[in-house]
Simulated scan of single mutants.
Amino acid sequence: MQEHIRHLFSENIQTMIATSEALAGPIESSALMIVNTLINGGKIICCGEGASANLASHFAQLLLDQFETERPCLPAFALQRDNSSLQPVNQQNHDYLARQVRALGQAADILIVISLNGAEQSLIRATEAALTNDMKVIALTVDNSSELSGLLNQQDIELKVPAHRPARVIECYTFLLHCLCELIDMTLFPQQGEF
């Protein structure tokens, strides 16, 4: 069992190294896009499906409250999950995130989409709604995210993690979102001190 534990740590480390090599530039671009949006009065809208919805809420809360040091609140929120109790039995509603984007998103805002496979219809429709509203999109995706990836424009950023195992993807996404928080804080509030 200990050998397997060491293997899990090694797999995580290798995924992180591969991600840092592949995404250092896009992560920097994402942080700067978020900073510019906040400076210009926009807000950050986050969404995910299933486990990635928890990451969306976590990231929005870190921006709204604080990451590691006290600082002013930043305008960010996560879209609400589907309340299936309001849906007729056996009817799936893939439009619930898109409806929120259409109602709350504006051209000055960014939609952050966190996808585990690129095929979640609710996330695809939310992305379409954001693009229709002239919002920018930052998408956290994996290698097989062709449908979601295909929606993105030149102004949008895709952070495509080179991992396939869901556990490694979630771990990498969490670290990536924490990196963004630190870069945002470091840029907007340099007087808060070193991290």
Score class of each variant (00 low, 15 high):
residue 191 Q to D: 15
residue 125 R to K: 15
residue 41 G to N: 14
residue 92 Q to W: 09
residue 32 L to K: 12
residue 44 I to W: 07
residue 51 A to S: 10
residue 53 A to L: 12
residue 171 E to V: 03
residue 172 C to S: 15
residue 33 M to L: 15
residue 10 S to R: 12
residue 76 A to Q: 07
residue 53 A to E: 15
residue 177 L to M: 06
residue 17 I to V: 15
residue 66 Q to V: 00
residue 144 N to Q: 13
residue 84 S to A: 13
residue 176 L to V: 03
residue 158 E to A: 14
residue 125 R to E: 12
residue 48 G to R: 12
residue 161 V to A: 12
residue 59 F to R: 13
residue 130 A to I: 10
residue 154 Q to R: 06
residue 146 S to A: 14
residue 87 Q to Y: 05
residue 27 I to Q: 06
residue 92 Q to A: 09
residue 119 A to P: 00
residue 190 P to C: 14
residue 87 Q to E: 01
residue 179 C to N: 14
residue 28 E to L: 14
residue 122 S to M: 04
residue 34 I to H: 00
residue 157 I to E: 01
residue 192 Q to W: 09
residue 76 A to R: 08
residue 60 A to W: 00
residue 84 S to D: 14
residue 141 T to D: 08
residue 76 A to I: 00
residue 67 F to V: 10
residue 67 F to G: 10
residue 45 I to W: 01
residue 161 V to E: 09
residue 9 F to Y: 08
residue 56 A to I: 14
residue 14 Q to F: 04
residue 85 S to W: 08
residue 83 N to Q: 05
residue 22 A to H: 10
residue 124 I to L: 01
residue 19 T to M: 07
residue 169 V to E: 08
residue 166 P to S: 06
residue 68 E to V: 07
residue 39 I to C: 04
residue 106 Q to H: 14
residue 69 T to H: 08
residue 77 F to G: 04
residue 39 I to M: 07
residue 15 T to Q: 06
residue 8 L to Q: 11
residue 61 Q to S: 12
residue 101 V to I: 09
residue 138 I to Y: 06
residue 73 C to K: 11
residue 68 E to K: 09
residue 175 F to Q: 12
residue 21 E to Y: 01
residue 180 L to E: 08
residue 58 H to Q: 13
residue 43 K to W: 05
residue 123 L to W: 10
residue 38 L to P: 12
residue 193 G to S: 12
residue 42 G to A: 01
residue 162 P to Q: 07
residue 107 A to K: 13
residue 132 T to S: 00
residue 179 C to T: 13
residue 158 E to L: 02
residue 20 S to R: 06
residue 30 S to M: 13
residue 53 A to M: 15
residue 62 L to N: 05
residue 52 S to E: 07
residue 14 Q to S: 14
residue 168 R to C: 11
residue 126 A to M: 07
residue 92 Q to E: 14
residue 59 F to C: 07
residue 119 A to G: 07
residue 95 D to V: 05
residue 20 S to F: 02
residue 138 I to Q: 11
residue 194 E to W: 02
residue 86 L to F: 05
residue 186 M to A: 02
residue 174 T to D: 13
residue 137 V to L: 06
residue 5 I to K: 07
residue 127 T to E: 00
residue 193 G to I: 02
residue 141 T to K: 01
residue 150 G to D: 08
residue 195 F to G: 03
residue 176 L to A: 03
residue 126 A to C: 03
residue 137 V to E: 00
residue 53 A to T: 09
residue 84 S to M: 11
residue 98 A to S: 13
residue 186 M to R: 10
residue 168 R to W: 11
residue 177 L to D: 03
residue 152 L to Q: 11
residue 164 H to K: 13
residue 184 I to G: 08
residue 14 Q to V: 09
residue 83 N to E: 05
residue 41 G to R: 12
residue 86 L to Y: 10
residue 165 R to Q: 15
residue 49 E to V: 15
residue 108 A to I: 06
residue 141 T to F: 08
residue 110 I to P: 04
residue 174 T to V: 00
residue 62 L to R: 13
residue 135 M to S: 09
residue 41 G to P: 06
residue 36 N to E: 13
